[in-house]
């Protein structure tokens, strides 16, 4: 996300296909790319979706290295997501192990693998679509294209932008706790105390920001103009159609090979 890691060169080389797509379309795409996967737990649909999405990385303008780097937490945690399913899914097929309420069966193994894959299939589009979305463009899109109330859109985006400042505060607070003799132990307690101070800073800075915005005429009853136009183009149509096709291919393949499994069925 550009808010946390400002990519200085991004503005200079925003030439990928995805850069010409309106952020609002990307939000829609995220819904398109996740709902069908949430409706089924099977390994085929997730695998197909991931394969197609990876093949389309060059169109996204995200460096492969960045995709890999940002996928690390996904890859690390996806298997853990399967554990609960492995132990507590309704047993079916051959039973491999059983203790107390936990039962590892053919069904639960299949579900666990599917859940782990699904975690990855759900996470990947977020990385590909939103690594380069600019908060200001997003605000412009939400207000001008999606027609959400501008007071809310701009207020929220401006507030969210304060995120970058919190990172420095957090680092300083960590050092300050070491300096004050309470930095040796009690990680959890220290976390909560720092999170609290972060909240104090956040609220106060937010109040000041609100005043600064009002001081510049924000929130008054004047009809607002927009310095940057935000509109949809043919690219958005092609892009969304493409996303629908990815999901159609993924679920279609799963149905075709008979692995499609509607949640709860």
């Amino acid at each position: 996300m550009s808010v946390t890691t400002p990519d200085i060169s991004a503005a200079a080389q925003r030439t990928a296909f995805l850069d010409g797509v309106n952020p609002v379309s990307k939000i829609l795409a995220m819904v398109v790319l996740s709902i069908p996967l949430l409706a089924t737990i099977d390994w085929v649909s997730s695998t197909v979706a991931v394969a197609i999405e990876l093949a389309l990385v060059p169109l996204c303008g995200v460096a492969v290295r960045d995709v890999l780097r940002r996928s690390i937490p996904l890859l690390a945690f996806a298997p853990i997501a399967g554990i609960s399913m492995l132990l507590y899914a309704e047993p079916g097929g051959r039973i491999h192990a059983q203790f107390l309420l936990a039962t590892v069966s053919d069904d639960s193994i299949a579900l666990a693998v599917a859940v782990a894959l699904r975690v990855f299939a759900l996470g990947l589009p977020t990385i590909l679509l939103f690594s380069r979305v600019d908060a200001t463009e997003l605000a412009d899109g939400l207000a001008q294209v999606a027609r959400l109330p501008s007071r809310f859109v701009l207020g929220v985006v401006a507030g969210v932008r304060l995120l970058g400042l919190f990172v420095d505060d957090w680092r300083s607070m960590e050092l300050a706790r070491r300096a004050r003799g309470v930095g040796d132990a009690g990680v959890i307690r220290r976390f909560f105390s720092m999170a609290f101070v972060l909240l104090v800073f956040a609220v106060r800075r937010g109040s000041k920001l609100a005043t600064a915005m009002e001081a510049r005429g924000f929130g008054a009853d004047v009809e607002r103009t927009w310095a940057r136009p935000s509109r949809l183009s043919w690219r958005d149509g092609v892009f969304l159609l493409g996303c629908v096709c990815i999901m159609a291919a993924a679920t279609g393949t799963a149905v075709a090979v008979g692995s499609f499994r509607f949640v709860g069925s």
Binding site: R151, V156, V157, G159, V160, F166, A202, S207, T211
Partner: peptide
């Protein structure tokens, strides 16, 4: 305005 901004700030925090 301050409600909206603080909602965002609380959301981020």
């Amino acid at each position: 305005v301050v409600d909206i901004v603080i909602a965002a700030v609380l959301g981020v925090a």
